[in-house]
Design a protein around this nucleic acid. Structure first.
Lengths: 156, 156
DNA sequence: GTGCAACATGTATAATTATACAATTGATCC
DNA sequence: GGATCAATTGTATAATTATACATGTTGCAC
């Protein structure tokens, strides 16, 4: 078979390069990794990369392969606080694709945004708060819709 | 098609159950999850579970699906310390499948074991230290062998 | 009521990943 | 030198996961 290896220890270099790449950004799949490595002059088949990723202990998330350290901490504790803040400030929540557009009284978006971030709900990828509007970014439209319903239930 | 759903909101319950299961132990794959859910009287196809896992933001590791919180922290900082301790105490390191059997002078296994744990090398799944022997558990035989070489290089 | 849109889900299949096996290379021992 | 073994990798394929599409259901507007 053609192992074009030729005795050069390519594996350690490849592993280093993979770690370098994954530190820059999550790698969506093994084919993408293969392309990136090729740019660095490193050839490897999908099978080899599958083995590499396992040996390096990388982890596959919705965003792609990451270092374990890069895996976001999820909600540290429940959201009693969030519910309270939300009851106070939430006026309206509209899904828009994978976003929820949350309206608050003028000047209060930030407060609610902070509470949302702190609660770090698993559904929430991130938030941006303006003056009276927060964009809540979720992984999918379905998530946005179901999370929105959860919000509305909370404020009952 | 037969969505035997009948209007009961099975999804939230299913999601709760999945989270409960994954808190107990990593779930190796979607088929295993399907079997577990069946035990709880919850029927779902692989496709549904694939969608569920994505919505819940679970992450796939070598051990299976986990909560992001359960993903182990990798080496926090390099291993200068470990190298020093290792030079002092390491006498022998033999690979045995996915283990490395590390020998130390009598009574020193624990010290080296602690240094190993602190360094939390990505290759190391865990360690057990006796009196003059440490078992270093890695993910694979290949990892064990290459890590062992790394050890031997360190102690020069 | 009808119509419509959003959901949840199953089926079938595409896409992705893991692995059994074979081949090559380099080291070690006789 | 030749034999043998461990390591690395490719090929082919199996196993696993994601998704395009279709369908039954529910809630809401009219």
């Amino acid at each position: 078979m053609h192992c074009r290896n030729g005795g050069l220890m390519t594996k350690p270099l490849r592993h280093e390069t993979i770690l370098k790449l994954v530190r820059q950004a999550p790698i969506p799949n093994q084919h993408a990794l293969q392309m990136e490595l090729k740019k660095s002059g490193l050839a490897a088949t999908q099978a080899t990369l599958s083995r590499d990723l396992a040996e390096l202990g990388l982890v596959k998330t919705a965003e792609g392969y990451k270092l374990p350290a890069q895996v976001a901490e999820p909600s540290q504790f429940p959201n009693g606080d969030l519910k309270r803040v939300m009851r106070e400030f939430l006026r309206e929540a509209s899904p828009a694709n994978n976003l929820i557009v949350v309206k608050t009284p003028p000047g209060n978006a930030n407060a609610l945004g902070i509470a949302l971030d702190k609660a770090s709900l698993p559904e929430v990828v991130g938030t941006i708060a303006g003056d009276d509007t927060i964009l809540v970014v979720t992984r999918s439209a379905a998530t946005a819709r179901s999370l929105r319903k959860k919000f509305l239930n909370w404020v009952g």
